[in-house]
């Protein structure tokens, strides 16, 4: 997993609420047995028409080269498919900002080095209104709007922060608990 520390990037503003994982990556594109290549079909049915022609009105086709997706509340609801996080990462996103994330999506994002930044409704609106670059600083847990200097802090567990900053994953940690796990199993018999 790539290490995450700090970035400054333009944003892709997706103002819709309740964006579900079926929109992020439709089920018919889940047939790969690897983790790669899902970015191609990210937001497939919003990005392309049925002939595969780009929909010029869709925000992802208007803003390229951004590493931060900013979305309306309850982003990532629905299916547990980690392919949604893989698709966002594969496409090039490093941060998703919203005023509320669905639980499973949030966990999946963190497990793939994609930082979910939860902000207040007001700050989300300020980001949308400004529509310019944001700076995301994981070390200090702050997100700011570059043009206006508005700043908000965000929450992340100390453990997950440690993982992201160092590019570690949960399995390394869990494997280091093997003895305790075996002891736990014995205690239940």
């Amino acid at each position: 997993m790539e290490k995450f520390i700090k970035l400054i990037s333009p944003i892709v503003p997706l103002t819709l609420e309740n964006v579900d994982t079926d929109q992020i990556i439709p089920a018919r594109f889940l047939k790969s047995t690897s983790r790669d290549g899902f970015g191609e079909n990210l937001f497939r049915d919003w990005r392309f028409d049925k002939e595969g022609v780009e929909n010029k009105d869709f925000v992802l086709n208007r803003v390229k080269e951004a590493e931060v997706l900013v979305a309306g509340k309850n982003f990532g609801c629905g299916s547990s498919r980690e392919h949604a996080a893989w698709a966002l990462v594969d496409y090039g996103f490093k941060v998703v900002v919203s005023s509320f994330f669905a639980d499973i999506f949030k966990g999946n994002a963190l497990n793939n080095g994609l930082l979910p930044v939860q902000v207040s409704e007001d700050f989300l609106q300020a980001i949308f209104d400004n529509n310019g670059e944001v700076e995301v600083d994981l070390e200090n847990q702050k997100i700011s709007i570059v043009a206006t200097g508005q700043v908000e802090s965000f929450e992340i567990s100390a453990y997950k922060k440690h993982c992201l900053v160092n590019g570690l994953d949960d399995i390394d940690f869990l494997l280091s608990n093997k003895t305790e796990i075996e002891k736990f199993e014995k205690s239940r018999i």
Partner: peptide, 22 residues
């Protein structure tokens, strides 16, 4: 509860998942 694939791998490797209590 449902889990993502990285968590499926956690369970494969250790029969455990890392979860914050809801």
């Amino acid at each position: 509860f449902g889990i993502g694939t990285s968590e499926v791998e956690q369970v494969f490797a250790t029969q455990c998942v890392l979860q914050s209590k809801p």
